[in-house]
Design a protein around this nucleic acid. Sequence first.
RNA 1: GGGGGAAUGUCCCGAGCGGCAAAGGGGGCGGACUGUAAAUCCGCUGGCUAAGCCUUCGUAGGUUCGAGUCCUACUUCCCCCA
Length: 417
Amino acid sequence: MSEFRPQSDFLQTLMARGYVHQCSDFASLDALAAKGKAVAYVGYDCTAPSLHVGHLISIMMLSWLQRTGNTPIALMGGGTTRVGDPSGKDETRKILTIEQIDANKAEIRKTFAKFLDFGPGKAVMTDNAEWLAPLNYIEFLRDVGRHFSVNRMLSMDSVKLRLERENELSFIEFNYMLLQSYDFVELSRRYGCNLQMGGSDQWGNIVNGIDLGRRMGTPQLHALTCPLLTTASGAKMGKTAAGAVWLDAGMLSAYDYWQFWRNTEDADVGRFLRLFTFLPLDEIARLEALAGAEINEAKKVLATEATALMHGREAAEAAAETARTTFEAGGTAADLPGIDIPEAELKAGLGVLNAFVRAGLVASNGEARRQVQSGGLRVNDVVVTDIGQMLTLADATQAGAIKLSFGKKKHVLVRPA
RNA sequence: GGGGGAAUGUCCCGAGCGGCAAAGGGGGCGGACUGUAAAUCCGCUGGCUAAGCCUUCGUAGGUUCGAGUCCUACUUCCCCCA
C-alpha cells in the first residue's frame, strides 16, 4: 500500500488522511475514481435510533468520494438488521422488531443529509429491505447460496471466533454474509455500484461480495476498508461512560458532542483532524505541531469543525462559546444544559442530593452522598460539604439560575419555573 | 438418549468452609497533579425517609435460627459417550 501512487483525487485524499487500511485492487479502483466512475456504498445497521461516532469515519469516506467527483450510496440495512451481523460480536444479537428497525431507519436517514448531497444524479440512499424482504428462499439458495462454500465460511474470522470461543452462532446470523454479499451484487446491478467500503472488520464480508459478483457476472467489484479506530491509549472510539457518542442531537446535544472532541487525547489530535474534518492538510500540520498546552487550540478547532459538520456551524460556535465562558472565564454560560424546577418547591427548600439526582448528574441519592464525600459536587462553584444543604430561591445567581456541577466538566443549570 | 460440568453484584471477567451487601481484577466515576490531555497517586463503584431498613448470586420450591453456599425440579449453555 505504501508504494502505490494513486492518480485519482479520491485515493490520494483518502491515503493522505489515513482512511485506508486495505484495498482489494488499488490500481483498478484508482482508474475508476480518476474518471469519476467510482460508485461506492457503505451499509449501516439500523440497530439504534442514531449512528454514533464509530460510524463517522465511513460517512466521511462517502463524503470525500462525492467531493472528488464520484458517487456515494448510503445503504440502510433495513433487511440485514432483521438478521444481525455476527462480526465482532461475542453474543447473539437481540432480534429487533420490524417496527423498531423502521423507526431507527427514519432517524438515521437524517444524518446522511448533512454529509452528502442527495440531489438528482448525486448520492443515492437506499434500503436493502427492498430486495431482501421479497426474496424467495429456494430461489435465493439456487442463485446465491450455491456460490458459497461452507468450508470457507467456517474459516472466516467472524465465524471462527464464535466457534473457538464456543459461543452460540445461530443459523440466521451465519447467513448474514450471504445477504451482505448479495447486497453488493444487487447494488451493482441497480446503481452500477463497484466499490464497498467499511471498517476493517468488514473485509471478509466485502470480499465475499466481490467473489459473488464475479460468479454472478457483475463488472469487477472492489473493497476498501478503513482502520478500526481506537484512541491512542487503546480505548474504543466513541464509547464513553454515558454510552455511545451519538451523532443525533436528540440523543446527544451539540454541546456534549463538542466536549467529546475537545477532550481528545493529545496524541490523537492530528489523526482526528485528518479523519473527521475537511480542513486542508497543511492547516492540520500546523495545528498538530503545537506543543504542550498549545495543543488545546488544535483540540478546539477539531471540536468546532467536527461539531459544525454534524450540527451546523452556528451550534458549533455556540458550543465553543459556552465552553469558553464555562472553562476559561470561569463564568456561567446561560445555555448550559438546564432543568426547570417549580418555584414553590425551591421556596420550600430542595435538598442538594435530590437536586443533583433531578438534574441527571448522578444516578441516585446514594451516589450523590458518595460524591459529596470525595468533593465532586459543587453548587454555584462552591464545593458541597453538607449532604443536608438546602437549595432555595436565594441560591439563584443574578442570571436567575442555580449552577450544579459534577466534577469539572459537567454542569446543569437549575431554573426556577 | 446416557454421563459430566457451568450460570455470582443487570458493564465485563471472576473468587466465594452454611453467618455475605458477598474477595480480586478490568472498565467507569470523583479527587490530587495538570492543559477540560496522557501518565501517576488516592477514594468510590446495590437502593432507601440511611448508626436502621429493603433488594441482590439462572428460575421455582425445600431443609435450616440462618442459604450464593446443602436438597429437589425446571431453564439455558458447554464437554464427553451413543
